[in-house]
Write a protein that binds this DNA or RNA. Structure first.
Ligand SMILES: NC(=O)c1ccc[n+]([C@@H]2O[C@H](COP(=O)([O-])OP(=O)(O)OC[C@H]3O[C@@H](n4cnc5c(N)ncnc54)[C@H](O)[C@@H]3O)[C@@H](O)[C@H]2O)c1
Ligand SMILES: NC(=O)c1ccc[n+]([C@@H]2O[C@H](COP(=O)([O-])OP(=O)(O)OC[C@H]3O[C@@H](n4cnc5c(N)ncnc54)[C@H](O)[C@@H]3O)[C@@H](O)[C@H]2O)c1
Lengths: 222, 222
DNA sequence: CTGAATATGTGAAATATTTAACAAATAGGC
DNA sequence: GCCTATTTGTTAAATATTTCACATATTCAG
């Protein structure tokens, strides 16, 4: 099952993990086949979009039948390389970092945070959920050869410095919760999780939809 | 300063909070004017996109000058209704919920989580960062009239039940970290934060870009 | 084995979003 | 007050993404 990773749209790429999770769940409940309209209800994506996405990976389905859940799970698993463990590090073991270390993507055995870093002396040398916390100054000693992914949970003010240290130590993929954009080296992929903006955008559309429903402007005051 | 909230594209809406945060930061460092190309570097959005977004709100800028930072802050603040406090509740005060309660969007005085809910007896009756935690069964007693926003940090398995309870109590906007889509009532706006998918999509593009850089397929084995 | 029912994969259209490019407007030095 | 350098706002083009709609392939009941 060889697929071309190179010609995919960004929109499709963002959906692959969702498809993967969903077909895995179907597989675990013993479901053997699924149609695009059924999948559509599970993932909240239009059936035509699903079929077009899937068509990027060859003729996965069969007319009049649907898709084999096992085959989908195999294809998406291969795309996401779930068969090789991704060892990651986390910088900033405060409130949010602690939550992530404790959860540690446990539903995905291939995703594993194996070490944490901080600058707070009271955290250095401890473990959180069994994961050792090191001094960020010792990053180059502690990091293991194959590692190239980091999760960053430091204050915005520390972000630029932390990220350049990570880049200097071979990290090429960064998921960060500090929403302050930093200049990155060409090869580095950074994904910003901006919870405040997500919340504000949500509130905006909620207020917006209420404006439509209740115009609240009586035609005449009398 | 009256703007039309109704004709905005989704893409623009998602950027409003980013603009707001950025111009606020400029304002606080005493900057009085800013050009679209300068802003572009701060927010990682193309200057033309910025100008087009801003043009939705009237003629905010002046040719040969740029934009008044104070005016931008005022316009975006009004769009986001930062002058009225949004009192929110949080359900699921576990690891992630605790981090959110502790942080409580403190940089945004208008965003405030004022109560938490859980079903764990060892949490009910306690406070986290001064915020009281109640039994979810008592939601209808504890919720205050104006509240319509909730943050959900419960396991995926509990999500559907929790969300229908929230809807039954007047909640119309929900930010949730359990990435399992649920059927929602028409008026309810739900935003899913799917950290695992974000990470997997990041890793995908990182691997993808490495495929291009190092083809690693020698033309001849000899 | 046959044929009605089904559901894919995909051209073509529709929609959404970004980007280029420049006329028009303003700034600000002199 | 004039003139040049700037920088906006916007028209048009380009790109990206979604959706429609149906010919085609396959299923499966009888
Ligand atoms: N927790 C939330 O609800 C929330 C919400 C939105 C955004 N965020 C963002 O997530 C990030 C982390 O939030 P948090 O609540 O965990 O903050 P926190 O203050 O609890 O934790 C930050 C951690 O980073 C460490 N740190 C500081 N400077 C460092 C450096 N230079 N190198 C390494 N470690 C360093 C601190 O010692 C601390 O342990 C922040 O940028 C915050 O803005 C958090
Ligand atoms: N923490 C992470 O790193 C992380 C990463 C990705 C996704 N998530 C998702 O975020 C959610 C919360 O994660 P977490 O790490 O905080 O989990 P957690 O187990 O630490 O906390 C869950 C909390 O929800 C409460 N709860 C359970 N059922 C409930 C119900 N019916 N009503 C009210 N409260 C209930 C539990 O008592 C607990 O306090 C989960 O859906 C998880 O999948 C977390």
């Amino acid at each position: 099952m060889v697929v071309n990773k190179l010609a995919l749209s960004q929109a499709t790429i963002k959906r692959i993990p969702v498809y993967y999770r969903t077909v895995k769940a179907l597989q675990q409940s013993g479901v053997k086949r699924v149609r695009s309209d059924r999948l559509s209800k599970l993932v909240h994506i239009a059936p035509a979009t699903i079929r077009r996405d899937f068509s990027n990976f060859g003729d996965l389905g069969r007319s009049g039948y649907g898709y084999s859940v096992d085959l989908l799970a195999e294809v998406f698993g291969e795309l996401l390389e779930v068969h090789s463990e991704e060892q990651m590090l986390l910088v900033g073991c405060g409130n949010l970092g602690r939550a992530l270390l404790t959860n540690n993507f446990r539903r995905n055995p291939d995703l594993s945070i194996v070490m944490g870093f901080d600058t707070d002396p009271s955290l250095i040398g401890t473990t959180i959920a069994g994961i050792p916390i090191y001094n960020l100054a010792t990053l180059s000693e502690k990091i293991r050869p194959g590692m190239h992914t980091a999760i960053v949970c430091v204050p915005s003010s520390a972000q630029a410095s932390v990220i350049s240290q990570l880049e200097a130590n071979g990290i090429t993929a960064i998921l960060t919760f500090a929403p302050k954009p930093v200049p990155a080296q060409p090869g580095t992929k950074i994904r910003y999780i901006d919870l405040t903006s997500e919340l504000q955008a949500l509130l905006f559309v909620d207020h917006q939809s209420k404006l439509v429903q209740e115009p609240k402007t009586p035609l005449k005051q009398s």
